[in-house]
């Protein structure tokens, strides 16, 4: 079983890294021929960086749009972020001091994440407009994330596993030295779902994470009169 999980995680990591790198390369290499920032927009690169930071950290546009989606979405994402940070302790020895510091917050974050996910899922059933636009994969994605959160919390509070061994397994994995993984059904499900999430990432709507950084309406400076902006394929039209 340890070997199976080791192979699974190597495959999942490979798919995640190569897949996302490929998609990012695609985003980056596709030209943006026209300046289309949603105005009012910052006029300088620094301003754009600030706008992007507000979008990524505070979900500014979503806040303007719908407070419920913003609240649940932000709760989920920030929870997820802290939970991921908390999990760094399984990959570092000695554990970095800031990771040690946030351990207690990471637990609350786990509940916040699950609550946010559950609320977002409820909206897919309760709000007619969102029910209309939801596809089966939207529900499965929420099930997957909620499953990860639930099994993780269960191992913390209901059915402990040998986390020292889990850490040994992942530390070993990083140096291609397969260590035994504790035989624990909760752990198996948790890890299986995480690997699945890593594998579907580059093929799914999870691409919104890198996507936002490439969104022309948000990442372009509003300076069309001051600087000439011509995409390579468009420049060829001028040579005809």
């Amino acid at each position: 079983m340890s070997l199976l999980f080791a192979i699974l995680f190597y495959v999942a990591a490979l798919v995640l890294v190569v897949g996302v790198a490929y998609r990012i390369r695609e985003f980056a290499r596709t030209p943006a021929p026209l300046l289309i920032p949603t105005t009012p927009a910052p006029t300088s690169t620094g301003g754009v960086a600030l706008r992007m930071a507000r979008e990524v950290v505070l979900f500014e546009s979503l806040f303007k749009s719908n407070l419920w989606i913003w609240a649940f979405g932000w709760l989920f994402h920030m929870g997820l972020f802290l939970v991921l940070a908390r999990h760094l302790r399984y990959f570092t020895e000695p554990v970095w001091s800031w990771v040690a510091l946030i351990q207690p917050f990471g637990i609350y974050a786990g509940f916040a994440m699950a609550a946010g996910l559950a609320a977002l899922w409820a909206r897919r059933f309760l709000v007619e407009r969102i029910r209309y636009i939801s596809t089966p994969s939207d529900h499965l994605m929420l099930a997957l994330l909620l499953g990860i959160a639930a099994t993780g919390l269960a191992m913390k509070f209901l059915m402990h596993t040998d986390i020292v061994a889990v850490k040994a397994f992942f530390l070993g994995l990083m140096v291609f030295d397969i260590q035994p993984l504790p035989a624990h059904p909760g752990l198996y499900v948790h890890l299986l779902l995480v690997a699945l999430l890593m594998i579907v990432f580059p093929f799914s709507k999870l691409l919104h994470a890198p996507g936002i950084f490439f969104s022309p309406t948000r990442n372009q400076a509003d300076n069309p009169r001051e600087a000439r902006h011509v995409a390579p394929w468009a420049a060829k039209l001028e040579q005809q």
């Binding site: 985003f27 030209p31 909206r123």
Partner: peptide
């Protein structure tokens, strides 16, 4: 067009069906 317009390429991949736009 997916090869010529980054907007289209990114927008086809990025929507999560959150519903923020549905009443706008």
């Amino acid at each position: 067009l997916l090869g010529k317009y980054r907007s289209l390429r990114v927008y086809m991949d990025s929507c999560v069906h959150c519903g923020a736009c549905t009443d706008k």
